[in-house]
Amino acid sequence: NQASVVANQLIPIQTALTLVMMRSEVVTPVGIPAEDIPRLVSMQVNRAVPLGTTLMPDMVKGYA
């Protein structure tokens, strides 16, 4: 099973992502693949992302 990127904390809207905000976890449905974590650093979320939420491509500006 492929690991996805999951929020390690509440990430407020417009926040630039850092490594400490994300973790990898095998979840359903599958979100952004964990191997993309380095690419996500400094990208902004376009909505508030609660703790434990799987990051989906449409939540990160410039990802999809």
Rank of each mutant, 00 (worst) to 15 (best):
N1T: 15
N1A: 15
N1F: 13
N1G: 15
N1Q: 15
N1S: 15
Q2L: 15
A3D: 05
A3F: 07
A3T: 08
A3P: 10
A3R: 06
A3W: 08
S4I: 02
S4Q: 01
S4N: 01
S4V: 02
S4T: 03
V5M: 01
V5D: 01
V5S: 02
V5E: 01
V5I: 13
V5T: 06
V6H: 00
A7R: 01
A7I: 04
A7G: 01
N8T: 13
N8C: 07
N8I: 05
N8M: 06
N8Q: 11
Q9H: 07
Q9K: 15
L10D: 13
L10F: 15
L10Q: 11
I11C: 03
I11T: 00
I11V: 06
P12F: 04
P12C: 06
P12R: 09
I13R: 09
I13G: 15
Q14F: 13
Q14D: 15
Q14W: 15
Q14V: 05
Q14M: 12
Q14I: 05
Q14K: 14
Q14L: 14
T15P: 04
T15Y: 06
A16Q: 11
A16G: 08
A16D: 08
A16F: 14
A16R: 10
L17N: 03
L17G: 04
T18S: 10
T18D: 05
T18A: 09
L19D: 06
L19W: 09
L19R: 12
L19Y: 12
V20C: 10
V20Y: 15
V20M: 15
V20I: 14
V20P: 15
M21V: 04
M21S: 03
M21A: 04
M22V: 08
M22G: 01
M22W: 03
R23Q: 04
R23S: 07
R23V: 08
R23D: 05
R23I: 06
R23W: 04
S24G: 11
S24N: 06
E25I: 05
E25C: 07
E25T: 06
E25M: 09
E25F: 06
V26C: 08
V26M: 11
V26H: 11
V27E: 02
V27I: 06
T28C: 10
T28R: 04
T28I: 09
P29K: 05
P29N: 05
P29L: 05
V30Y: 12
V30M: 11
V30N: 11
V30K: 07
V30H: 12
V30C: 11
V30R: 06
G31M: 01
G31Q: 02
G31D: 00
G31L: 01
I32F: 02
I32M: 01
I32N: 01
I32Q: 01
P33A: 08
P33D: 07
P33L: 08
A34L: 03
A34Y: 07
A34R: 05
A34W: 08
A34D: 08
E35F: 08
E35C: 14
E35P: 06
E35G: 10
E35D: 09
E35N: 14
D36Q: 12
D36F: 13
D36N: 14
I37D: 00
I37N: 00
I37L: 12
I37H: 01
I37K: 05
P38M: 10
P38D: 11
R39K: 15
R39V: 08
L40K: 00
L40C: 03
L40I: 12
V41D: 02
V41F: 05
V41Q: 06
V41G: 01
S42Q: 13
S42I: 04
M43E: 04
M43D: 02
M43N: 04
Q44H: 11
Q44A: 08
Q44C: 15
Q44R: 12
Q44M: 13
V45D: 02
V45K: 00
V45R: 00
N46H: 12
N46W: 08
R47W: 08
R47P: 02
A48E: 13
A48S: 13
A48W: 08
A48L: 11
A48I: 13
A48F: 11
V49G: 01
V49S: 02
V49R: 00
V49K: 00
V49C: 07
V49Q: 02
P50V: 07
P50R: 12
P50T: 10
P50Q: 13
P50K: 08
P50H: 09
P50M: 12
P50G: 11
L51S: 15
L51F: 15
L51Q: 14
L51A: 13
G52K: 01
G52M: 04
G52Y: 04
G52T: 01
G52A: 06
G52V: 03
T53G: 12
T53H: 09
T54H: 02
T54G: 02
T54Q: 03
L55T: 01
L55P: 02
L55M: 15
L55R: 00
L55K: 00
M56E: 06
M56Q: 13
M56H: 07
P57H: 07
P57A: 11
D58T: 09
D58G: 09
D58H: 12
D58W: 10
D58Y: 13
D58A: 11
M59L: 05
M59Y: 13
M59Q: 03
M59A: 07
V60R: 00
V60A: 03
V60S: 00
V60Y: 01
V60M: 05
K61S: 14
K61C: 15
G62H: 11
G62P: 05
Y63R: 03
Y63Q: 03
Y63A: 03
Y63K: 03
Y63E: 03
A64P: 15
A64D: 09
